[in-house]
Design a protein around this nucleic acid. Structure first.
Lengths: 105, 105
DNA sequence: TCATAATACAACCAAATGGTTGTCAAATAT
DNA sequence: ATATTTGACAACCATTTGGTTGTATTATGA
């Protein structure tokens, strides 16, 4: 299996989605993120690492603390993909319409 | 680990994203989908099964063939989540603006 | 200075993922 | 009638995932 590190992988896990939304409100360190989860610090740190590898967040060392900040621009790739799929979907109907008009002639 | 079956899981895999986009153009049976992939029929069938369990496609039996159709409405959940995250992100700046205005007084 | 807080690193685990191959059943075409 | 196509089901495999615990390191606060 290939270890995939992209935005889609980043948002596949519900815990990671929650982390992203928390960070959307502003930067936090790992300890502050852990507070909201019924999970070990290490487990959260792993998610943070994955999110960072996927380029969805950036981690800045500040003394002994690590501040995490969301990079929401990366979500564009997801939004674009959804938009593209919908476009294809709509074209499908247009083609059907054209076909119907064609057969009416 | 808990087996998650949601839209985010469905689009996490690149092969599945390609299948969705192919089906966005119109319904296909498994054989037709396999053609485009360098992968065994069984592997594709597994992805189809997952997509179906995630509610992103519907499968209709037609004689010996199985036609797969995309259910793009399910992608709304993804689009909504991205929109929501961005909203929080923007509010972050608004709050900062307000804070700046406040301190200016 | 010294305890504590914040985190890193590594080992470990069960379950899921993404793939394979083989066998079997049913519908269709020749 | 029989071969072929379409697909289901199961077993198997290596890797990843998502979590745990334990230990070590480093920065900060009292």
């Amino acid at each position: 299996m290939i270890e995939r590190r992209d935005v889609f992988q980043a948002i596949a896990d519900p815990t990671r989605r929650m982390i992203i939304q928390k960070l959307s409100k502003g930067p936090l360190n790992i300890g502050q993120i852990v507070e909201d989860f019924d999970m070990s610090r290490q487990a959260v740190a792993k998610h943070i690492k994955i999110l960072s590898e996927c380029g969805v967040i950036t981690v800045v060392q500040k003394g002994r603390e690590q501040f995490c900040e969301a990079k929401l621009s990366q979500l564009d790739e997801v939004a674009d993909w959804v938009t593209e799929s919908r476009k294809l979907w709509n074209q499908r109907f247009e083609k059907l319409d054209m076909l119907l008009k064609e057969t009416k002639k």
